[in-house]
Design a protein around this nucleic acid. Structure first.
Lengths: 352, 352
DNA sequence: ATGAAAGCGCTAACAC
DNA sequence: GTGTTAGCGCTTTCAT
């Protein structure tokens, strides 16, 4: 800690004066333009450090036209799917000297609109839209301004609009086949909110993968959830009413699976002895469950990385032709919530 | 969606020209200065909307000296303690027209230093420091610049430095007495990393509350954890080696408790039948555990609210005398991980 | 009530 | 290689 200058605001001029150079030289030094005389540079740096000077980003941004901010729109920070995305996004941003403007829509179109306004007002250089659902709604403004955008799993790409395509099929196939290998035949599926493209796709993949290996799907075993724990509990209650229980249930996301586990806990149904449960997403919490949840991983870290680099390359390369496409594979993570199908018998007794 | 202007950057001048007024009038209109002629105002607004004009925050900030950004430093966004804080902080910020600059230290002093630099460069109007531990280290820079600061649970207040004091005692007393009422006598405590002030305090409170009701604490039943699940597992393994097991264990945070639960699961120890477990923090995940975790709540939402308003009032009131103090109570949330102490197999000797 | 003009702190031509 | 200077887009006196 050095004794530091405490008087009126120190700016580039103050530095220039004290280092006996022009503001231009100070600017060049700070921006590490190679042509500056090392002598002078050292003088400048020493004053900079002595005074604890930090350049004013606003001014920089204003004149350069570069805010060095990327927007990151999520639906809810408290949704366990997002913290890792935010963390990784931030880590990479720091490395690249970017700031991140994080906004959440909390599933409210008005909030989405406000998010977009905030992004524009702060002149972000790009926006990663990680909210599964309200994408198209209010983003025209951003597109019109040619702000680079990156979506997950949305329609056709446009100029400056990149897309991360999720290969849901791969992981779901692994899960279905894993279950089949464990002798499960009555496999249930709890969907997400079906207006969500990603949720609908997951269901389709499930159906496809079942058919693929010649397993029939009892329509009664497909029930709708809403990607929340409560939804999972309700949905599983439905399943419980079936004359013949499923021996395994695949869920459209982990929170749903957690709901199923809780309901089982209440009913004295033992996982995986009585029922195998598979989630989707592989949020952190999946590992913390008892038993740890077998789930289909869609790496949040990787998603964040792809999103960031999509924006970065839009910003660096003018060359981006027509919005790039990125791909993210899903794959099964085996843990302890799946096991051999119970030999057929009637529903296990509820134990106190 | 209106057809929108697509040409070169639209700025306040463009608006002025089209509305046939001066830039000053546009500025006043946008800032809702009451003195503008409603006639003109309407003309301005219509152009603004037609062109989809959004003022440039950087320019505004530069000239006004107000960035309308608050910094929020956390230790790790993926730490389940923080998402709710971030969410609530953001919600309130939006309402007040503030942006939030979120940084995480990931327990790295260098990252903390970078965080501080980022804050200063963006000229934040205040910083909430929600990282329990590395507070003092690198914050001199911020203090010197008279940036309003708010800490949790840190030393004496200074000018422009507010503090949120946590009343750990209240919740811990409730927990200990709850356990005592359930006939528990051998109560273990798993600490956090003891260099953390908050962790040390929690332990002291535990000791105090035990003594208060005349329960003796077996030193062997105090083991050190590190606020992670793994730490909780290791710590509980220690406890398992005791000749006489504790019947209840109080943990310095929820992740530790989750570690205990996992270890119990592995060992076939049933919660709460064989062991009662109490956590601390009440992170969301606590509700999702099986059984749902009884824990001492330290409301993250309230913490965020207090922190935000601490900063806001520093910024609004020049009147802040010498850093305000805020208080946050903790209190027990009963769920299902605690129950009557199991009847003892061997009675411990009582010396009188 | 409105407009003209002076900067906010910095970068980037452009001169030297 | 270094300095001079004209803005970046806005707010805010200060005149009118």
């Amino acid at each position: 800690m050095l004794a530091q200058y405490c008087g009126p605001p120190m700016d580039i001029r103050e530095i220039a004066k004290r280092a006996k150079v022009s503001t231009a030289t100070v600017s060049r030094t700070i921006n590490r333009v190679p042509s500056v005389n090392p002598q002078l540079a050292r003088r400048v740096w020493s004053v900079v450090e002595e005074l604890g000077y930090y350049p004013n980003t606003q001014a920089r941004a204003l004149v350069s036209g570069k805010s060095r901010i990327f927007g990151l729109i999520v639906s809810e920070i408290t949704n366990p799917f997002f913290p890792e995305i935010v963390q990784v996004f931030e880590n990479i941003a720091v490395q690249h000297g970017y700031e991140i403007l994080l906004t959440s829509t909390v599933h409210d179109p008005k909030r989405m609109e406000i998010s977009v306004r905030r992004m524009i007002e702060r002149r972000v250089e790009g926006v990663a839209v990680m909210t599964f659902g309200m994408e198209e709604l209010v983003l025209e403004d951003l597109k019109l301004r040619n702000v680079p955008l990156v979506f997950v799993d949305v329609g056709p790409s446009r100029a400056h609009v990149s897309n991360i395509r999720i290969d849901y099929l791969h992981g779901i196939r692994q899960a279905v086949q894993h279950l089949a290998a464990l002798r499960h035949e009555r496999i249930a599926f709890i969907t997400g909110p079906l207006q969500l493209r990603s949720a609908a796709t997951r269901q389709q993949c499930f159906l496809h993968c079942m058919e693929e290996i010649g397993l029939t799907v009892d329509p009664k075993l497909i029930v709708e959830g809403d990607h929340t724990m409560e939804g999972g509990m309700v949905a599983f209650s439905q399943l419980l009413k079936q004359p013949v229980m499923p021996t395994a249930v695949l869920c459209s996301n982990d929170m749903t699976a957690i709901g199923v586990m809780r309901r089982c806990h209440e009913e004295g149904i033992l996982i995986p002895r009585d029922l195998s449960v598979v989630g989707f997403d592989d949020i952190r919490m999946a590992q913390f469950m008892l038993p740890p949840l077998t789930t289909i991983q869609m790496s949040q870290a990787e998603l964040a990385r792809l999103a960031f680099h999509a924006l970065l390359s839009e910003v660096q390369n003018e060359s981006a032709p027509n919005g790039a496409e990125y791909f993210l594979k899903t794959s099964l993570v085996l843990r302890e919530s799946t096991g051999l199908a119970p030999s057929r018998k009637s529903r296990p007794e509820k134990s106190g």
